[in-house]
Nucleic acid binder design. Structure first.
Lengths: 241, 241
DNA sequence: AACCAGGGTTGATATATATCAAAAACCATG
DNA sequence: CATGGTTTTTGATATATATCAACCCTGGTT
């Protein structure tokens, strides 16, 4: 319950696009693996700032992030924006579009990135033939729902510093799950984007970072984060109030 | 983008439990309808306050709400709770549990209610045989993800009165979709529950109701809501700031 | 190496919402 | 229909975060 997205490893579906270490679906026999090739996913490259899709675009495919990272955001007509997530290697993006056959948010590359495009009708057809794939797809969608519930808890009932602590701990876990350092990493997003995600203004995010630094929880050097005292960071989420 | 859950009608899967008017899956031929009987859903009754499931329970089934209504909530260890949704007739509940085979939130009846229990393994098996059912299941999960994104936008970037306006407009739409009056209805939830859902304290919710009433947007008599000026209520969401 | 632009930090102040408290309305029950 | 307990409303005040503004980095470019 602590974190919005436990977001453990085995996420994706796309075993043929070199993310297999991270996201191979559970038990597929070799015959099934062969079938999976029918998916024939196409790789596509993006630079920082490029849109993978925009709200309103016709839905055709899900995307497995092969390298790099993206943010998803919803825009309100009056210009307000809300970042709804930061996605990294091995995560699947585009699930919101299944509902109406139209993308409901924007997905923007936060750095040079490569995605595998997974045509959804083929994915559906294959998952009728391969129960393990079907189950995996359901799990991925459900995991997104659980993640969202965690963010609701965060936005609805936590104060600024707790939110930031949850955010950092979540990143830490996800980096760890990818074999990267869970205690030192580079943020790919600006204070403004973090603020939008956490329902805070960028100044508040900046102040919270400074306060964590002054309290000896973390070391911040602009976008380089080093977690000094993981336990205190965790306590910060639980103990408040 | 206005509302977190457009949440239109055709929601469910359970054609055999008399909610067919509301939630019949799209185009099924009679042979497929026959197959659907294999689901053999069991009806279960609940009184106000009863738990349909609790966080941590083993996952077996999804539930289609046949009558009445439920709230779902996540609990943080330190006692904080966040209401993540209010579900009514024709809506499907339990999707969060697919991810880990364990329910990730509580579902509590808000009044006397009846649900159809839909064993998930049978649902999966059937949806491998009936593409339209598979598609419907995917749509339902995706719709939940879109709804959650709307709530993130609400919690992350709207002020108290906007949140309440969005909440009321959403209820109004959902009642309308069920053939009930979109302008006059009974709230099933307390100020405290509304507050938890909207990330506000109950006093703030109460004040916002009073302010809407004084401004002639709605008539409030405790839990009876009458929308007097729908347009102004909509404006209230868009025009602020 | 100097310069510029965008992002980040920090400070002073304003404001929306929370908190605390009391009264009022409502509901269930005997 | 009186009673007690809960829910709701309203008021006064406190507080967390937003807002406004200035300054400071930092990395890239000429």
């Amino acid at each position: 319950m602590l974190l919005p997205a436990p977001n453990s490893s085995h996420n994706a579906i796309c075993s043929t696009c070199n993310v297999s270490e991270l996201c191979l679906p559970v038990d597929l026999c070799s015959k099934e693996l062969l079938k999976l090739d029918q998916l024939n996913p196409i790789k596509r490259c993006f630079s920082r700032g490029d849109y993978l899709y925009r709200s309103g675009d016709k839905f055709r495919s899900l995307f497995a992030i092969h390298s790099g990272s993206f943010k998803t955001q919803v825009l309100h007509e009056d210009g307000r924006e809300q970042v709804t997530g930061f996605q990294m290697v091995g995560e699947i993006i585009g699930l919101d579009a299944i509902s109406t056959d139209t993308h409901a948010c924007d997905a923007v590359a936060m750095e040079s990135s490569v995605v595998c495009e997974l045509p959804f009708n083929r994915l559906e057809a294959l998952s009728r033939e391969i129960p393990a794939l079907q189950r995996q797809l359901h799990r991925i969608m459900s995991r997104e729902i659980v993640r969202d519930q965690g963010i609701m808890l965060l936005l609805g009932s936590m104060r600024a510093e707790e939110r930031l602590a949850v955010f950092l701990l979540n990143l830490s876990q996800r980096y760890a799950a990818r074999g990267l350092s869970p205690i030192k990493f580079q943020l790919r997003m600006s204070r403004q984007e973090i603020g939008s995600y956490l329902g805070l203004k960028l100044e508040t995010v900046s102040r919270a970072f400074s306060h964590f630094q002054n309290s000896g929880l973390i070391n911040v050097k602009v976008r380089t984060i080093e977690i000094i005292d993981m336990k205190k960071l965790v306590d910060c989420v639980n103990s408040s109030r």
